[in-house]
Design a binder for these strands. Structure first.
Length: 633
RNA sequence: GGGCCCGUAGCUCAGCCAGGAUCAGAGCGUCGGCCUGCGGAGCCGAAGGUCCCGGGUUCAAAUCCCGGCGGGCCCGCCA
């Protein structure tokens, strides 16, 4: 029985209601909520808003539902659903005996969905900002998959463009390989690359600032270089700075590397690839620790070299929307909007009314392409390669404009389906106190450091509580707590909230955190461990007459619907708050009622079944959030 | 200047999209309790708020509309 006894019952009510009153099931599910007062029943739906003559049809609906543990009533325009906990319990025990487990309700309209996330540039280590992207993206993918969709997770390696060229230039000025530097600095390779990137980038900017006479800026950058110098190898930093300063035209150097790479010429072709690959391996190691993986790694350079980009560009050249902007070839997006975008499209594109869309420049004057140009081609590829109905791009909201431009460009170039079904899942970036993080200045808190710090704290705490644990067990538990704490803290606030990074907050282990949920799960698991196999046939539904157990039961049984809704609405934060509430109810009950010391066998097995249910819900929900559901901690 | 996001307890935030039935909530912090009970990463209690401000719509507004104010982001031949 999909959804379990409660969700099935509620859906039956919804369907009958749709049948008898025409109120869509969707609206019912959307607006159904817990009642504020017990005497109204358990769930309420504001029926009067949709249907005036409720009194007349109520008996019909009731009869249509015909589930003995469900009764309906009307109050103040609300249709209230009251559950009989004994009937619900009886049904639950029966299901559990048959091996039923709570899981998100499967969708009736499965789609093929691509989720592209993280896609950090291979020029600096992953930092806490990327972690938010990765955590959100991975969580969306998990939820959508569990909902029954066919999900393909992709990572886009941005190895074409200016940024990678900066690192390549930096290494060639140093005359050493990334591996060597990594060894010399004693850091992961992506950290070493990030250091070279920051030093080179800042050195170039400083030189340029000085040359154009911006003394103030030059001094600021010089100060930054001092910091960077201390953080790595001072003599190597000096070498980069010195050689950058002696370059006649650093920009021309970068431009040369870029265009040769785009053209696929050696040695740039091997060099840039190798460097990106090295950084990527560092990323995957970190993401692997976080429990995050991909179905496909897509290289931006492949989009260029495979001819995909050329095909799109030739379309663009023949397009009626081709124009010139500041001497460069561009797409006249405003004209596309005027000619191709109606009210419906405007909404799908999320284009604000009256918004002036700037033209999209397709090429730099040195002939190389811009990232958004390549992104048009890649977008088409994501749809075609995965035969996707929808593509979700998890990208910071600061990129809203270019993302919108890409959607409009797709529309204008004849890729209407792609343009309209591409969703920019926006999230606010993580800020450091007082400032944004900056890869090119080397200002960031790396994810590796954060995990290690969290792990250390967790290990201390876990060792205190579990002196019997082996080193290996402790290690893996601490890692689980660290990952749980970090991921939960990044996914729990709504994606539109900007987060100011605060180590203390992220690593907290108390209520309203990932570890709190993990702890609750471990407690539940512990009871079951001590209790042994649940004997469902002995379980007495009467056990749920007690208030706290009753609310726990009802809340836990709602899980399949909550998880389904969170998935459809792409709102992991809703799942997070639901789980917190469940944990609260569980812990409150736990405090004053014992399972294994319950003398009455019927009640004991009933409670055990309830704990089993809660533990399964927590286990499933935590997995969807990417928080490891630990059994001990 | 234009577009978008955010503004709720000292702090971090939920509720707003789909206005209602004790809707003013949670956590942190503060203060006070609970360790001979299945794990105290827990539980119980107290203090703490003009829901940024001003209008409007409505029988009803934290929620919708308009106008302000404060903070953030974007408006680059960077990504």
């Amino acid at each position: 029985m999909q959804g379990g006894p409660l969700v099935q019952a509620l859906l039956r009510v919804g369907r009958c209601l749709e049948d008898k009153t025409g109120v869509p099931l969707d609206s019912f599910v959307k607006l159904l909520s817990k009642t504020p007062r017990e005497e109204y029943g358990d769930f309420g739906f504001p029926l009067a808003r949709f249907f005036g003559r409720a009194e007349q049809v109520l008996p019909e609906v009731q009869q249509c539902v015909s589930i003995d543990y469900v009764s309906l009533s009307l109050w103040n325009g609300f249709l209230n659903v009251k559950l009989d906990e004994r009937g619900l319990g009886r049904e639950l025990f029966e299901l559990m005996k048959g091996g039923w487990r709570p899981e998100p309700l499967k969708t009736e309209t499965p789609r093929r969905i691509v989720v592209e996330h993280t896609s950090a540039n291979p020029v600096h280590p992953l930092h806490i900002g990327h972690a938010r992207n990765a955590s959100l993206g991975d969580c969306l993918a998990r939820m959508l998959k569990a909902r029954g969709n066919d999900v393909v997770v992709r990572y886009y390696v941005n190895d074409v463009g200016r940024q990678v060229s900066v690192v390549v230039l930096g290494f060639s000025l140093l005359g050493i390989e990334p591996e060597e530097l990594s060894t010399r600095l004693g850091t992961k390779i992506d950290h070493a690359i990030g250091w070279v990137y920051a030093v080179t980038h800042t050195a170039i900017d400083a030189v340029m600032a000085r040359r154009r006479g911006d003394q103030e800026e030059a001094e600021r950058l010089a100060a930054q270089l001092v910091k960077l110098r201390e953080r790595g190898d001072a003599s190597l930093a000096d070498l980069i700075i010195e050689r950058v300063s002696s370059l006649e035209n650093p920009e021309a150097k970068l431009s040369e590397i870029m265009s040769r790479y785009e053209a696929g010429l050696e040695p740039e072709r091997s060099k840039v690839r190798a460097l990106s690959q090295a950084a990527l391996e560092g990323f995957m190691e970190t993401l692997g620790r976080m429990g995050i993986g991909y179905d496909s790694i897509d290289w931006e350079s492949d989009v260029v070299w495979s001819g995909l980009l050329a095909a799109v560009l030739s379309k663009a050249r023949e397009s009626p929307y081709l124009t010139k902007h500041k001497e460069a070839l561009a797409l006249d997006l405003m004209r596309i909007v005027r000619e191709r975008v109606g009210e419906k499209e405007r909404e799908r594109l999320r284009l604000p009314k009256g918004f002036e869309v700037p033209p999209m420049i397709l090429f730099r004057s040195d002939g190389t392409t811009l990232y958004w140009t390549r992104d048009i081609a890649y977008s088409i590829y994501k749809f075609s390669d995965s035969k996707a109905d929808q593509v979700i791009n998890v990208i910071a909201s600061e990129q809203r404009l270019p993302q919108l431009q890409i959607r409009i460009a797709l529309l204008g170039l004849g890729y209407e389906r792609e343009g309209l079904n591409m969703l920019h899942y926006e999230y606010e970036i993580v800020r450091l106190p007082g400032r944004a993080m900056s890869g090119r200045r080397g200002e960031y808190v790396t994810l590796d450091e954060l995990i290690d710090e969290a792990k250390e704290r967790a290990a201390k705490e876990a060792a205190l509580r579990n002196p019997d644990l082996s080193k290996e067990e402790l290690e893996s538990i601490a890692e689980g707590i660290a990952v749980g704490a970090i991921r939960f803290s990044l996914v729990q606030p709504g994606a539109t909230k900007s987060i100011t990074f605060d180590v203390e907050r992220v690593l907290r282990l108390e209520e309203n955190t990932g570890p709190y949920l993990q702890y609750t799960h471990a407690r539940a698991h512990n009871i079951l461990e001590k209790h042994g196999q649940v004997k469902y046939e002995l379980a007495e539904p009467e056990v749920f007459s007690e208030r706290d157990r009753r609310s726990l039961l009802i809340h836990a049984l709602l899980y399949p619907m909550v998880a389904a809704k969170a998935a459809d609405e792409l709102r992991p934060e809703d799942l997070a708050s639901y789980l917190l509430k469940l944990a609260d109810l569980f812990n409150k009950w736990y405090q004053k009622d014992s399972v294994i010391r319950e003398p009455n066998a019927g009640l004991r097995e009933g409670k055990a079944a309830m704990v089993q249910l809660v533990s399964q819900v927590l286990g499933s929900g935590l997995s969807l959030l990417g928080v490891p559901p630990l059994k001990r901690m």
